[in-house]
């Protein structure tokens, strides 16, 4: 099975467990099943883009990987450990960092207070968190006492990304971080994603804008109707993307 999912071109590090491994995952909400036996492997230290049309199950895949949605069957491995049934909070402390769709911040807390809560996720001090964040995003430093929900969309997304920046997670799950943002800001955020990946953090990246994601990705997976239909080098997968997005059945 693993062989089909990782074509020969994918050079998985030998002897290192993949950062994330989903095997035959079935999951959904109530009686509606969204993932019908999903298989996906994110090799350690790589950046994988997860692409697919609306309703393909991309967000649900991230929800399963972060423990938010319990699969009804199948195995969830993080860093080689079987973690089915672990709570989202436990997975977070174990190094899985998920930045949710929309703005992953507490809108009624100030910037500084939001950052203070980040210290629950990893063993970092408040001083380190604020210093690193304000260093990378000087704009946030000017707004530290502002209520986060009143900032612009881009600033809110920077604040959300600060969690990924300062906790140095083992696995980073990003859900549509470009949603509703200006191209300049998207470019800045993707610079950060690329930098995090270069530091060796494994990333699973869900994105509607296939081109943006494929530009930074090491591998890409294409998802339709709750299953992975293609995995491989970004260039190889890119050929199928238009087909799938425009209603093909590949």
């Amino acid at each position: 099975m693993s062989a089909d999912l990782l074509p020969a071109a994918v050079e998985a590090p030998v002897g290192v467990a993949p950062a994330l491994e989903l095997r035959g995952i079935r999951a959904g909400y109530g009686r509606i099943e969204v993932l019908h036996g999903l298989d996906l492997v994110v090799p350690a230290g790589s950046l994988m883009a997860l692409l697919g049309p609306n309703g393909a199950g991309k967000t649900t895949t991230l929800a399963v990987a972060s423990g938010k949605v319990r699969p009804t069957s199948g195995c969830l491995h993080v860093g080689g450990r079987h973690v089915n049934g672990a709570s989202p909070a436990a997975l977070t402390r174990a190094g899985v960092c998920r930045i949710p769709e929309g703005r992953g911040i507490f809108p009624n807390l100030t910037v500084a207070e939001n950052l203070k809560l980040v210290t629950y996720a990893a063993d970092v001090s408040v001083a380190e968190v604020t210093a690193m964040t304000y260093d990378r995003f000087p704009k946030l430093g000017q707004r530290r006492t502002q209520v986060a929900g009143t900032m612009s969309g881009g600033e809110q997304q920077m604040l959300a990304m600060a969690r990924a920046l300062v906790t140095s997670p083992g696995l980073l799950l990003l859900d549509e971080i470009s949603m509703g943002l200006a191209p300049l800001i998207v470019a800045e955020l993707y610079e950060l994603v690329a930098a995090l990946a270069a530091d060796g953090i494994s990333v699973l990246l869900v994105e509607q804008f296939a081109r943006t994601a494929l530009a930074v990705a090491d591998y890409a997976a294409l998802m339709v109707g709750g299953r992975i239909v293609r995995v491989g080098q970004p260039a190889d997968v890119a050929a199928f993307v238009d087909d799938v997005y425009l209603g093909g059945t590949t």
């Binding site: 709570s87 402390r93 949710p100 009624n108």
Partner: peptide, 20 residues
């Protein structure tokens, strides 16, 4: 702070590593 945050978004608190 966590108590104030949990009202708005319990899931996000879990993503910060705290059981809501």
């Amino acid at each position: 702070l966590a108590m104030r945050g949990v009202v708005d978004d319990p899931d996000l608190l879990a993503m910060n590593g705290l059981e809501p």
